[in-house]
Amino acid sequence: MPNNIEKLSALIITYNEIGYIQKCIESVSFADEIIVVDSYSTDGTYEFLVEHPKVKVIQHPFSNFTSQKAFTLKQATNDWVLFLDADEVVSKKLETEITSTINSDNTKEAYWFYRKFMFQNKPLNFSGWQTDKNYRLFRKSKAQFSDKKIVHETLEVNGSSEILKEKLTHYCYKDYKDYKGKMLKYGKLKAKEAFYREKKFTYLALLLKPSWKFFNHYFLRLGFLDGKKGITICYLNALGVLEYCKELKRLEKKNELAYYLVMP
């Protein structure tokens, strides 16, 4: 073990996460500092965070996930950061693994976490999520969020990485309305990202992509083994792809209209 104990910053972004942020904050109480960047919640999330003795909360307008997380990362005072979503929870076993990892002699620059998905407090074992993993623990000095993506942000790491053994618990599905709204929001942001990268809308993609998403997650990725939960998740994920295609078409039409309006 090293002579000096490494300090850890827990970072979270929020918007209307009351009912979930409490469990998240409690699970990272072992961190040396907890910083939450809130994009002007209206459901009591901000008020809860302001009153919490261990939390430093900052309100910052939301543009996209990458810019919000990049801003949040700058607020950390420690090199080691644990970046969580507000609906994620660190188990005691994962806490032990995190603290022992950052204080070991043979540390990497970043660590992947596999996630255990929860559907209304019940495990979601398949439906395309069984191989999902994300960077959650890394050195601030060795990583940055890529500006090439504005949703499902990508962390660029200058160095080596490993996968931790324990899984992070992710309460992905609160209720139908919430998850549907999340998928539609992701679809629109992905369309904006694709539009900036000059990808084109096609009716063939509109027809095939949502159907393929459902087929892939429900049949090939074994969503049917999750029962009714699998049908719901796979359908809403496909709906997000449909929204992506429709939003890309809307952006192209808007761009064409703007072009004709400025023509002499």
Score class of each variant (00 low, 15 high):
14 T>N: 12
29 S>Y: 06
64 N>S: 01
88 E>R: 10
34 I>V: 09
110 A>T: 03
135 Y>F: 15
257 L>P: 01
245 C>F: 05
246 K>M: 08
183 M>Q: 14
171 Y>P: 11
142 K>F: 05
164 L>A: 04
147 D>L: 11
223 G>E: 02
204 L>F: 07
217 H>C: 13
242 L>Q: 00
42 T>E: 15
186 Y>T: 13
60 H>Q: 13
97 E>L: 01
185 K>C: 07
37 V>T: 06
249 K>S: 01
205 A>L: 02
16 N>L: 12
160 S>C: 10
27 S>I: 08
117 F>E: 12
59 Q>R: 13
115 R>H: 13
34 I>N: 04
67 S>F: 08
65 F>K: 10
136 R>V: 05
85 D>P: 08
60 H>R: 12
75 Q>T: 08
88 E>M: 14
95 E>Y: 03
182 K>R: 14
105 D>S: 00
3 N>S: 14
214 F>E: 00
140 K>I: 03
226 D>A: 09
40 Y>I: 11
236 L>S: 06
102 I>G: 01
182 K>L: 15
44 G>M: 10
124 L>R: 04
252 E>T: 08
251 L>T: 04
2 P>T: 06
63 S>H: 15
60 H>S: 11
110 A>K: 05
201 F>I: 01
138 F>V: 00
87 D>M: 09
181 G>S: 10
186 Y>D: 13
254 K>D: 14
13 I>D: 01
98 I>Y: 02
13 I>K: 02
220 L>E: 10
261 L>S: 11
17 E>Y: 08
75 Q>R: 04
12 I>V: 15
143 A>W: 04
113 F>A: 03
163 I>S: 15
157 V>Q: 08
162 E>R: 11
146 S>A: 07
45 T>W: 07
63 S>N: 15
112 W>G: 07
83 F>H: 11
69 K>M: 10
136 R>L: 07
245 C>N: 05
120 Q>E: 15
60 H>D: 10
40 Y>L: 13
112 W>K: 11
222 L>E: 13
130 Q>V: 09
253 K>W: 11
160 S>N: 14
210 P>A: 00
42 T>M: 12
248 L>P: 00
28 V>R: 03
43 D>M: 12
29 S>D: 07
207 L>N: 01
72 T>E: 05
209 K>L: 02
37 V>A: 06
193 E>S: 06
102 I>R: 00
163 I>R: 12
232 T>L: 11
78 N>M: 07
70 A>C: 08
